[in-house]
Simulated scan of single mutants.
Amino acid sequence: MKMKRILLLGGTGDALRIARQLGAEHVYSLAGLGKVPDDLACSVRVGGFGGSEGMARYIEGEDIGLVLDATHPYAAQISANAAQASRAARVPYWALRRPAWQPQDGDDWRMVGDWTELTDALAPFRKPLFTLGREPLAHLDEIPPHQFWTVRCLDAHEDTPRARILAARGPFTLEGERALFALQAFDVVVSKNSGGNATEAKLEVARERGLPVVMLRRPELPAADREFERVADLLEALQAAD
């Protein structure tokens, strides 16, 4: 794809789909978590920028003409830095805003805004499944005496007497989630409202089993010059801008 040089901020499956359409002159930037792709035509940059000012300097120094934000919906600080850096460097800032999941009939969602609210909501339960990423790993010494946690995240980590750590990367199938839930007998699921279908199966299994879901609210994200809900729409817009 030929156009002004793109800085693609990624780390999600959606971002990788976009990166696979970019030519050698463009840059795919990753924070460094998880697997770094080695089969892309575009350049891959790993690591931070040093806040919005550092990103603005990078944009100007690398002659970037468009910033594409395809980070996770909960990567609020990265998105804020990207929006500010784009304004400072006077380049367009486009964002892929994946639609949030919506509760369906039979769902029992308990919405929370932060870790304190989350732990309060979990107080009645004994065997939660955490699907929040790495954050619960910082709280393994805070597990209440009546609870045993299962934490699913990208990071490998030793189990503890009070927690099981499952290092796994989506997408997760409905059959696989059913088997996991049946084996571990979770009584509550803890989730971010990530949207998309890669990790949605856990919500369907929770619905099937009548389990509540403690759902972390999405953070507020900065407005973009153009926002897209689907990768296909963003790629079409890039093609039209060629």
Rank of each mutant, 00 (worst) to 15 (best):
L216N: 03
K192I: 02
N197Q: 13
F186S: 03
D159M: 11
E200M: 05
N193G: 06
G170I: 02
L180Q: 13
F172W: 10
R209Q: 15
H157T: 04
D155L: 10
L203S: 03
A163S: 15
L166C: 07
L174R: 15
L216D: 01
A179S: 13
A167H: 10
V213A: 13
L203I: 02
L211F: 03
E175Y: 01
T173V: 01
G170K: 07
E200Y: 12
A168F: 03
S194V: 00
L183T: 11
Q184N: 09
V213M: 11
D155I: 00
D159L: 09
Q184L: 09
R169L: 04
R152W: 07
C153T: 15
H157C: 12
F172V: 02
E175D: 14
D187E: 12
M215F: 08
G196F: 04
N193E: 08
S191G: 02
T160M: 08
V189P: 00
A201L: 03
L203V: 06
L166H: 08
R207T: 03
K202L: 06
R169T: 06
R162V: 02
S191R: 08
A163V: 01
E208Q: 15
F172N: 00
V190E: 02
R218C: 03
K202G: 01
F181Q: 12
D187I: 08
L166N: 07
G210L: 06
A167Y: 04
R209W: 05
A182V: 04
T199Q: 14
L154D: 01
V189H: 13
A168R: 13
V190S: 11
G210D: 04
E204R: 14
L216Y: 00
A182N: 11
A168E: 14
R207L: 12
V205C: 03
F181V: 10
P171Y: 12
G210I: 04
N197R: 14
R164F: 11
A201E: 10
V214P: 00
V214Y: 02
E175M: 03
T199F: 00
V188P: 00
H157A: 13
L211T: 05
V188I: 14
F181E: 07
D187A: 09
E204P: 00
F172P: 01
E204C: 06
V213P: 03
V188T: 12
R218Y: 09
L180K: 10
G195L: 09
L180F: 10
R164S: 05
E208L: 09
R162C: 08
D187Y: 08
L154T: 06
R178M: 05
K202H: 05
I165R: 04
L174V: 01
R217N: 12
L154Q: 13
A179W: 04
D187P: 06
